[in-house]
Each structure stands twice: as C-alpha cells, then as structure tokens.
Design a protein around this nucleic acid. Sequence first.
DNA 1: ATAGGGTTAG
Length: 671
Amino acid sequence: MQFRVGSTNSTTSLLRRHQSFVSHSTSPPSQTSKWNLNTRQINLRTLLNPIKENPNSLPSLLSYAQIFQLLTGTHFYKLGQQVHALMTLQGLQPNAYVAAKMVAMYASHGDIDSALFVFNRIDGERSSLLYNSILRGCAKNGYTEKTLEMYYDMNSIGLRPDNFTFPFVLKCCAELLRVGVGKCVHGQSLRVGLECDLYVGTSLIDMYVKCGEILEARKLFDEMPMRDVSSWNALIAGYMKNGVVGIAEDLFRRMSNRNIVSWTAMISGYAQNGLGDRAFDLFEEMQREGSEVKPNWVTIMSVLPACAHAAALEQGRRIHSYARWIGLDSNSYVQTALVSMYAKCGSLVDARSCFDRLCVKDKGLVAWNTMITAYASHGLGMEAVRTFEEMIRFRVQPDFISFTGLLSGCSHSGLVDIGLKYFNCMNSVYSVEPRVEHYACVVDLLGRAGRLVEAKELIDRMPMQPGPSIWGALLAACRTHRNVEIGEIAAKQLFVLEPENSGNYVLLSNMYAEVGRWEEVDNLRVIFKDQGMKKNPGCSWIEINGKAHLFHGGDTYHPQAKEIYMLLEDLPKKIKAAGYVPDTSFVLHDVSEEEKEHNLTTHSEKLAIAFGLLNTYPGTVLRVTKNLRICVDCHTATKYISKIYDREIIVRDVNRFHHFKDGSCSCGDYW
DNA sequence: ATAGGGTTAG
C-alpha cells in the first residue's frame, strides 16, 4: 500500500492552506420532522385493525397493495411476511399491481429472493409497473446482471419501457462498464421518444461518463432540449472522474443554480485529483455562500480524504468538530472516513476511537478494511491480524482489500509464516481470488525477510502477468538485502514496464555504487540524462499548530535556515558520541565520503525534524510526512534524535508510519 | 416509483 502523493507543486500549494475555515457561529440545523413516519403508521393501523379484529374479513387486493406500500422501507419486515402469508391463506393471488408493491417491499429489505418469488408467480399479465419494481429492486441491491436480464425479458414480451425503466437499466450498464449495451438502450430510448426526458437524459450522460466516453456525454448534454441541475452535475462529475478538472471548473462557474450535489461533486473531484487545497478552498467558499447550500454527510465524507492526503491532522480535527456541530458525525460513512483520516494523519488512537464508536450494524466491510489497513500502515501487523479475525467472527465477508491490508501488515511486521498461511487459503477458506496486488504483498513479505529466491520463484509461477508492483517489490527487497544479481533482473523488467520512473534507475545505480561497479553506475547515469529524467525530489513537511511547513532536501531559503543548519551540524557530534556511524550507501553518485555525509544531513526529513525541535515545546510529538521512502541514514538518525531530545517523532513515508521513541522505531528496523 | 455528489485498496 502506498500513500499517493501528487506532484510536488500541488503538494506545496496544498500545504499553504491550513487556516481555520469552519465557522462555529451558526446554530445547528433543526432535526427532520417525524411527522411523515407517524401518518404512515396511522394509515397502516387503519388498514390492519379490521383484519386483526375480524379474522374472517376479506380485505380487497387494493388494500393489500396499500399495506405493502406503507411497509416499504420500514423496519416491519416480519409484518410484511405475515400479511403476505395471510393473503395466501385466504387464497388471494396477487395481481400485477399488488405484486409490484410486494416486490418493492421485499426489495427494500434486500430480500431479492422473495421479490423474485412473488414476481415469478403472479396471476395474469405482467405490467411495466411490475417490471420497473423488480428492476429497481435488483439494481438497488447490486443484482446488476439480473437487472439487464429482466430488461431483455421485458422487451421480449413486448412491454414498452418507460421513463422509470431506463434510469435503472442505465445505472447497471454504467456499473458493469458495458457501453455497448448502454448504446443499445440509448437507441431504444430514442425509439420510444424519451430522449427529452430529464431523468433518462441525465442517466445517459452518467452512463457514458462512467464508461469513460466523456465526448459522447458532452454531445448528449449539448443537444438536450431541457436540462436541469442534475444534468449539469452529472457532466461536471464526469469531467472530474476523467481528470479534466479545468472544464469541470468552467461548467461549475457557468451554471446558474448550484445545489449541494454540485458543490460536493467539485470538492470530491478536487480531492480525487490530488488537489486538496482547492477542495478546502471550495468547501470554505460554499460555507460563505450562506444558507442556500448546507453540507451533508457526502460533503463531509468527500473533504476528509484531502486532509488524509496532506496529513493535516489539525485540519482534519476541525472538520471532525464541524461535523459534530452540524450533527453529521454519527453517520457511519462519515465515521469510516474519519477512521481513515486519523490513521493517515498519524493518530491511530483517534482512528481506533472513531472505529469503536461505530455500532455493530454500522461496522461494514469498508470500516473493517480501513481499520485493518490502519494497523498495517502503522506497522502493527499482529493487530491487523486480530482485527481481521474479529471481522470474520462478526460474519463480515472479506474482500480483496481486506487481504491487501492483512498481507501488507504481515509484511511490515515480519510475520512471514502467518502472511503465507493467509495467502495460501484466501481462496479456499475466504473465497477471495488472489490478485496481482496480493502477489505483490507476498513478494514483499518474502523479500523483506531476505527470502529473495523464493520471492523470485513465486513470480515465475504466478497465474498472471507480473506488473510493476511485483518487480518493484522485488527490487526494493534486493536493495535492502544487497542482492545485485536478482536486483538486475527486476530492474530490467521495470525499465521496460515503466521507463519513465526514475526511481528504478536510482535504486539500481545505488546498488551498483555500493559494490563499487562504477562503470555500470556511469552507464545508468548516461541513460538517465539521455532520457531527460530527473530524480524525484524528496520533500517532507511537518505540521505545527495546524500549519504545515514544507522542506526540500538542501533548502537554504527558509527564514530559520541558519538555526536549522546549526542544529543539524551540531547533531553528528551529539550522535557520534552515542556511537552512531552514518550510513552513506544511499547516495546516487560517486562522491567523497565527506560530501556524502553533508548530503545526508540536509535530507528534507531531517530539516523538518530540526525545524520541529526548534519551534515546539519540549515533549511535543513531532509529525513529519515524506513523499518518498525514508532512507536508512535518516531512520537511524531519527532514532537517536528521539533519545537525545526525548521526543516522540512520527514519520509517515510513502509506505508506512514510523513511530520513533526513546531511541528505537516501531518498525523494529524492518521496513 | 425514476437522474446527479460517495468512505477502504491502487
């Protein structure tokens, strides 16, 4: 697993924003009225009481239909079953109209089997209404293939699809990424003259957008005789999903009525495209806009990843308290997003407490996966395993993400045997087919443990093509265990698979340099230059009082540069007195030892830590984030710093968290 | 009864 870090530019600008944007001066919104539910219950009682009082009474089919309609979406599933049973006892066969209501009732409880049972044995002809009802049920409950099957069925018996039919079917085409089917359905909607319908048109835009055909969606949008907010929103989200941020922005600025969905589409689009700073800006702007638009749980859930990405813990806390203020923090999706945010911002304690606040029924697959991954990324492999087992006990079916979390957790903690055990039985016991990413985890697992030959053998007998993640894991392991021979094999594959990735050249070059093969180092340097590649610049940032401070390796223009460098120059003496020898094997070029040592003292993570030491009170925890993997030397130095200055230092690198305390690191030097 | 924004992993 990796923390995705965008381009340095976007990271830099992202970090400029750390001001409070949440105003707590407004009062929380009032609770939604319960009136609706009460009238529903009263109506239900007037229908049911006559039956209860006189068991011989024979209610009409119409009143049965009304009962089922009132029961749809309520908690009275059992009652619905009883009424159904009563109907059967009275020898009443539901007609298409009653069946449609029954199907809706069962489907609203996720009971598709019963819905299909009713659907398949009705009295008389089926209606479009009945088909729409079953389509809705199947589509809403993830039975996508079944939905399409039903749609074919409906056409084959000559029933005319209407404005309600198409949205359900198109949603499934989008989910299955079946543009071919979608185009066919598009044709049918034209044939029945529904191209002007707002719902059908918007569903078509959405379908094309999700299948990646943004031009087709645009064409449709431009040709629509009538559009509303939803059509605009669908297109905006479409451009965002396809990474075309500029056009999305343009549309957003041009549209006349924006609603909360429009704002959320923009905010989440920014966050997903690695533009967290703009996500925050817009979130603020939306609040300034006044009472017209109120953020809802989707909005909150969409800003949180931007905090996670920037490791902006204080920002995240502010959004959390804002969510609490407007009464959205109890939403299970928001809570799950909070777990992830806190974990990625380095606070495992807060992550866990949010997780614990979720009640049992709200602890869904995603929440469990998030917690497992959180432990894994903080190097608590055994906790990840325990959480996974707990999830199984709660009868939550794991998916491929559960296993990437579990396996990477084992890998980072050196739990080789446990990891292999899970990998070997994930299909047979848990019915999860291993994917490339799982193989990558196991290559990593074996590789970190120094079992490089076994790792290579695993790659050779993989059932799928090994991709960059596989060879990358092997190369990194070869670097750690100084195996040039296998490292070359991995690197050569990577040069073909991802020629633009400079990191691979740097890694191999370092390996050659270490064993003194300078000729090969020179060769690589030539290739490196010829292809115009640049070393991915390392940068680190530290959050102090909710404000982020960014450093690049060798920065000298910082206002406090002088003090920072003084502290760092002083450091080797202090550390050497404690028996520390700098590890210079991670420097790319062949330079003299002193120069190497100098380069190392100015690595960005050291600058950030020094800055933190200078600008916080003794005892404050330092939280540093780095866009690359932390190097061995900085890792060692940080251990000493934590001891000499008596500080807890938490470093998040691309792969995981390191908690430094009292001279040692939570990773046990195993990463 | 119908459309548009969506948390985990990469």
